[in-house]
């Protein structure tokens, strides 16, 4: 199993690497196209601001490489949002894998949405063994709108897509690497896809 975490300078990727290590898998951090293409499984992480992150992807040409990947890809947090068509954050065009838009939470709730909330309406192998209304840790100010590719939802101000799937592409808004044992189970499921 060759697992690559795409390293394009966005955010806390050590935590993801450590989480896989707890599962017994050594993940490689890389921004090298050949290494990414040769991987069995790919993690597309992201913490930070969308337009800055997208600029970093463009610098390395990863913006054209990522949508063409054929292995299982898991976008986490901003990684998931960048896989969508468009995000209001920094008025940024996304990679267009998931046919949905990313919007900012209204100010009727505290922003960022920070802490533990439940995921429900689960429908994917990614959530095998995960019960409905399981708690996950989230930190985000923008959310993906529902679409045909929604595989989990969460309520905060509105009901939004907290996970998406399009063919080999998976995206989760929450941080499985920080979501206790249930989160680790999801990462383990991803490795088995």
């Amino acid at each position: 199993m060759k697992l690559v975490i795409i390293n394009y300078g966005a955010g806390n990727i050590k935590s993801i690497q450590f989480a896989f290590k707890r599962l017994g898998v050594d993940a490689v951090l890389s921004n090298n196209p050949e290494e990414i293409l040769a991987a069995d499984k790919i993690i597309f992480p992201g913490v930070g601001e969308a337009s800055t992150a997208m600029a970093m992807l463009k610098e390395t040409g990863l913006d054209t490489l990522i949508p063409k990947l054929t292995q299982p890809v898991l976008g986490i947090c901003l990684g998931m949002q960048l896989l969508c068509e468009y995000t209001e954050e920094g008025n940024t065009k996304g990679l267009g894998v998931f046919k949905t838009q990313v919007k900012r939470f209204d100010n009727d709730v505290k922003v960022p949405h920070m802490g533990w909330n439940v995921i429900k309406d689960l429908k994917s192998e990614l959530f095998k063994g995960i019960k409905e209304n399981e708690y996950m840790y989230l930190v985000h100010s923008y959310y993906a709108e529902h679409c045909a590719e929604t595989i989990a939802t969460t309520d905060y101000s509105i009901n939004y897509a907290s996970a998406l799937q399009h063919n080999n592409f998976y995206g989760v808004q929450f941080h499985p690497e920080k979501s206790s044992f249930a989160g680790e189970k999801i990462l383990e499921n991803f490795l088995k896809l």
Partner: peptide
């Protein structure tokens, strides 16, 4: 801590 703990 980051290696061994699975919460933020």
């Amino acid at each position: 801590v980051a290696e061994q703990v699975n919460i933020p």
